[in-house]
Amino acid sequence: MIRAKALLRREGSNDSVTHLELFFDLVFVFAVSQLSHHLLEHPTWTGAAETLVLLVAVYLVWTYTTWVATLLDTAKLELHWLLLLIMLVSLFMNASIGAAFGDFGWLFVEGYLLIQVGRGAWMLTTGLDGTLQSHFVRTLGWQCVSAPLWIAGVFFDPELKLVFWGAGALLDLTGHLLAHRVPGVRTEGTHVPLAGERIFERFGLFYLIALGEGILTTGTAIAANLEGPLILLTGTVALAGSVAIWWCYFYRLERETLDRLASAADHFRPGVVAGNTLMVLLAALILVAVGDELAISRPLEHPDVATVLILYGGPALFLAGQAVFIQRVLGRVPGSRLVGVGVLVVLAAVSFLLPAFVAAIGAALPLVGVAITDALVHRQSRPPNARQDGPAAV
């Protein structure tokens, strides 16, 4: 127990996110880029399914490591070595994403299981209290059940590999969503010493740098198509959509969430909702980045079904994810997000008749509309003597 007390973050501590943690995140921003390129190269239902399976694995590695770094004191040398070692293994795992359904599936699975099982086993040696010990025992048990599916998939062709890995990812995600419950064992979030504000800061920063990767993808696409007659228009539309996505979270939603969290006794369950929402938002950002690149590179072509689903699916998934989060955590009906999703569905239905650049404009407009609505609602609800407010600081 002495070691546990030395490694656990002090109760009530909300220390700022460290530079090492942000450095660690860069490996996973690289993974987001790899996933975007995989979907761009395979814009089919099978390619989308492969991308989703890989995203689940990447996200679970990042989020479980982030939870550990939030529970434990990141000033301790043991945590430095843990993060750096996971960073090393993750670098090779994420580098193999493009070839995971080819010749290097073994490398992706080896990295994934080594991190998930190894980190969980290490946590059980730290002498945690009963609640945390039970949590990590259950987590490790669920991971050991899914591991044979991941391992078996390595030995099959891409079609069967997708079946086995899909089952493994579904099992891991189900365990995550159920907080790794097992029959006869009760879970109690109020007993988990989680620094709520810190975990939300962690999620927000990762979301921001993942959004920055989308900007990088857009910039690369612009640089490759500078001679295009509509490059100024398509590039501006892509950036406008990204700015709207940033605005929809950082203008007021983050501050409202932190204010609500300050009065909540249980920081564990809101943190779980935030983490699950982040995975949805990452999937949305991948779709948005791929859609922007398709519109920039082929602006005058009429989009096929895959392009329309990517162009409109990203913004719709983003707004839907935020809608669920707002309802679950803030307890209010997110009308603007629901209207935005409805408008996207209607516009998607007619986009097959339009050039890709017009379809891209249609996909970005609801995002911009929601961002403007948020700003107007905030201004109307602000007391007359309140100072001018802007996007919340990160």
Rank of each mutant, 00 (worst) to 15 (best):
I209W: 00
A240Q: 09
V109R: 01
H38N: 01
V58A: 08
D259E: 15
P299H: 02
P183F: 03
T307V: 13
E197Y: 06
S36A: 14
L261I: 04
I245K: 11
L367K: 06
A274T: 11
V272M: 15
V333T: 15
V237G: 06
V163D: 08
A244H: 06
I86G: 07
N225H: 15
G141F: 09
G335I: 01
V343K: 02
L230H: 15
T74D: 13
G214E: 06
P391C: 05
E50M: 10
G271Q: 04
V53Y: 03
V324R: 10
P355N: 03
V237W: 00
V394R: 12
G212K: 05
A99V: 12
P366Y: 04
I2W: 07
D73A: 01
Q133W: 12
A100I: 01
P148D: 10
Q143L: 14
F30R: 09
L230W: 14
P148W: 05
L226C: 07
V27A: 12
M87C: 09
H302F: 12
L114V: 13
A316S: 11
L282P: 09
A244Q: 08
Y312W: 07
E11R: 14
G340F: 07
F318Q: 11
A147D: 02
Q116P: 12
H302G: 11
Q388T: 13
V243H: 02
A356L: 12
E11Q: 15
T44Y: 05
T257N: 06
L319I: 03
A69I: 04
Q380E: 11
V280F: 11
H37N: 12
V329N: 03
F352T: 11
L232P: 04
A240G: 03
